[in-house]
């Protein structure tokens, strides 16, 4: 085994050639995922709300967008942006920007569905009560429906983020220096430790994604408010304590 290869190149896996050159490796992967999920969040809210509109000409574009994206592989989307943008705009776009746009557009469609489901999970009576007191649709959405829907969305949203973090490895294909690409580069150069290298990379992806799902679980607990049917963790613990004491 040649673990020294991994050891020697760890910094390269984590940061690419930074600080002497551009950021790469895990740093770039995480940055791409963060940027992608941030943009996808706003795209998702916009198209999720459009999807729920009563007006067909608002709803329709959203349905088309969501269904097309959900029915095509992310890799193809990256190719489209990579090969089509230069044809349309007569000048190439930097690879990192290409992938970031592809990630946002792709994840945005899924987030839109999460937003739709989150809003539809709020009982109808909430909207009626809000509108009934004279709030307009926008106010009712902003102050009553969305704050509750966003909380319900957290687990699915983090899922999507985890997915995207792993999918950033697809940027490899158009030459973006993210984690997977740094690994192949080192592997091509050294040739004697492929198992060690790709095992390490897998562990790195796992740590990031596992950390995220754990955070999501913690957030879910912390943000859950008392609702009639659902108890907070603290209350359940108190109940247990009481029953044990008695």
């Amino acid at each position: 085994m040649h673990w020294e290869v991994v050891q020697k190149n760890m910094v390269y896996f984590l940061l690419g050639s930074y600080p002497h050159g551009p950021l790469g490796g895990l740093g770039l992967s995480v940055l791409l995922a963060l940027g992608g999920i941030f943009l996808a969040f706003w795209i998702g809210i916009l198209f999720g709300l459009m999807r729920l509109s009563k007006r067909w000409y608002v709803r329709f574009p959203s349905i088309i967008y969501i269904e097309i994206i959900r029915g095509t592989p992310l890799l193809l989307l990256i190719f489209w942006f990579y090969f089509l943008v230069p044809v349309i705009f007569k000048k190439p776009m930097p690879e990192i920007r290409t992938t970031l746009i592809a990630f946002s557009v792709f994840t945005g469609a899924y987030v839109a569905e999460i937003v739709r489901a989150g809003i539809q999970s709020i009982p109808k009576g909430q909207m009626e009560a809000a509108r009934g007191t004279g709030l307009n649709y926008r106010q009712a959405m902003a102050y009553v429906i969305m704050p509750q829907a966003l909380r319900n969305m957290i687990p699915s949203f983090v899922n999507q983020f985890v997915s995207l973090t792993k999918d950033t490895s697809l940027a490899y294909i158009i030459g973006v220096q993210e984690l997977t690409r740094t690994a192949t580069q080192v592997n091509n150069r050294t040739m004697n430790a492929p198992a060690e290298i790709f095992f390490t990379i897998a562990v790195i992806y796992f740590i990031i994604c596992f950390g995220l799902t754990q955070t999501s679980r913690y957030l879910e607990k912390r943000l859950s408010y008392k609702t009639s049917g659902r108890m907070r963790q603290r209350d359940i613990v108190e109940l247990k304590d009481n029953s044990e004491a008695s």
Binding site: P147, T227, S228
Partner: peptide, 13 residues
């Protein structure tokens, strides 16, 4: 004003 059978208070505030 309207009062509903299921109260419909906003649970998050």
């Amino acid at each position: 004003g309207m009062v509903f059978q299921q109260f419909n208070l906003y649970p998050h505030i």
